[in-house]
Each structure stands twice: as structure tokens, then as C-alpha cells.
């Protein structure tokens, strides 16, 4: 049985999955609800404009979709296709798409597919979900207990899909790159800027909370 301190740490760990989006929205660590409120970002607008989520059911549906994977299935499909090829074949195949819309996606998969764990870019979906759950709680679409339950389910998925915070960070940003289909140096620098503080500053959860943290058994979700 996990004590209160450990449980609190586990929750902080789960919330820290959303650190990239939290920090982009001006939230300083630790990413407590109070800190989120202080940052005064438009949590309602984010949920409504991006996901058309305006209530608890919408949030729960969003979580189910994110867990099933939003961008990761496409990533994995391309990964599978490219996995059957030699490196040279892969290169030629990707280049054959240079003038086409899918080029950015193919290029990104080719770039990261050998380094990512079998979970692929699930981090991108899970990390965003952690952030949206916090938004939902701020908007009181879900209760504190419900946020915790969904966060823990998300955390378990992430924890056993990756090996470290940098590992998670790479997968998250590979997902972001895949989503944007942008291969420019500037985009990469922007993404790096998002991660840099999280990975280097002394008092960020990614530095303070070890990846191999013990997570409690997530509570059964009420449908």
C-alpha cells in the first residue's frame, strides 16, 4: 500500500507528463492546480476550440481517444512499412515523397523509428492528455478524484512505454514533429526550447522525480 507522500509523488509524476504544454502555457513547476490557475491561461478555450470539449463526458471521451492513440497509429503504420526496408530503401522511399504532403511525416518516422521504443510517439498523445486533464479540472468538467484517476491511467501507460524522461521527451517531440510535418531547423529549435528548461533546470519535476517511480494501481474508471 502506497503512503500519502508516495501517492502525492506519483500524482506529480503523472501531471509532469504534461510539462511541455504546461510550461508553454506559462505554468511554473511544481504543476499544481494552484500554479496552473496562477498562470491564467485559457483552459476553457483550449478544450473547446481544439477538441470541442465542454463537459466531463467530452473529457472522458478525449481520454479514451488519446489512450487509443491519435497520431501514434499513423506513425506506427509508416514505421511498419519502413521497417521492411533497408536503410537505403527507406531513404529512397522517403525522398520519392519529397514534393508531396506526406513527406514531413515520412521523414520524421524515418528519422526516429529506430530509436523510439515500440510505443512510438505515444508520449505525444499521453503528454497532451495529461495537460488536457488539468485543463478539465480547472474548468471543473471533472472532479479532483476523477482527474487523479485519469492521470494515473495515463501515467501507467507512459511509465512502461519509455525508459527515462529524455526518452519520453524525444518521443513527445518526435510526435510533435510528426504532427506538424515541419522539418525546419527553426521548428526544431523551438521544440528544443520547450524541453531545455524541463531537462536542465534544478527544480523541475523531470529532474526531481525519477522515471522509475512507483505508481499506484489506477482506480477503476466509472464509465
Amino acid at each position: 500500500m502506497m503512503n500519502a507522500y508516495e501517492y502525492e509523488r506519483a500524482l506529480n509524476w503523472a501531471a509532469a507528463l504534461g510539462a511541455p504544454l504546461l510550461s508553454q502555457n506559462g505554468v511554473r513547476p511544481p504543476y499544481s492546480p494552484a500554479a496552473c490557475r496562477a498562470a491564467n491561461f485559457d483552459s476553457e478555450g483550449i478544450l473547446r476550440k481544439l477538441w470541442n470539449v465542454t463537459d466531463g463526458e467530452g473529457v472522458r471521451e478525449l481520454a479514451r481517444r488519446m489512450w487509443a492513440g491519435m497520431h501514434n497509429p499513423s506513425f506506427q503504420e509508416i514505421r511498419l512499412l519502413l521497417s521492411g526496408m533497408t536503410l537505403d530503401q527507406r531513404q529512397a522511399y522517403v525522398e520519392s515523397y519529397r514534393e508531396r504532403e506526406q513527406y514531413g511525416e515520412l521523414y520524421t518516422v524515418n528519422l526516429y523509428m529506430d530509436r523510439l521504443t515500440p510505443a512510438g510517439i505515444a508520449a505525444w498523445d499521453l503528454g497532451r492528455l495529461a495537460f488536457y486533464l488539468r485543463c478539465a479540472r480547472l474548468e471543473q468538467y471533472i472532479t479532483e478524484a476523477e482527474e487523479e484517476a485519469y492521470l494515473l491511467h495515463t501515467a501507467v501507460r507512459a511509465r512502461f512505454s519509455y525508459r527515462s524522461w529524455p526518452d519520453y521527451a524525444v518521443a513527445y517531440m518526435a510526435g510533435r514533429q510528426f504532427w506538424a510535418g515541419d522539418l525546419s531547423e527553426e521548428w526544431s529549435e523551438i521544440n528544443y526550447g520547450i524541453l531545455r528548461g524541463l531537462l536542465t533546470e534544478e527544480s523541475t519535476p523531470w529532474r526531481e522525480l525519477e522515471w522509475e517511480i512507483d505508481l499506484p494501481e489506477p482506480p477503476v474508471l466509472v464509465p
Binding site: 521523414y107 528519422l111 526516429y112 530509436r115 529524455p166 521527451a169 524525444v170 517531440m173 518526435a174 514533429q177 515541419d182 522539418l183 525546419s184 531547423e185 521548428w187 526544431s188 521544440n191 528544443y192 524541453l195 531545455r196 531537462l199 536542465t200
Partner: peptide, 17 residues
């Protein structure tokens, strides 16, 4: 050679630390 590679940047960060 590969400026869009985010992992390289993260590795560099680690090396710099």
C-alpha cells in the same frame, strides 16, 4: 547534417551538463 533531430539536441544538452 540533421538539424531537425531533436534527440541530438537533447543529447547535447546532457553532454553540456
Amino acid at each position: 547534417l540533421e538539424p531537425s533531430d531533436i534527440e541530438l539536441r537533447i543529447r547535447l544538452l546532457d553532454l553540456q551538463s
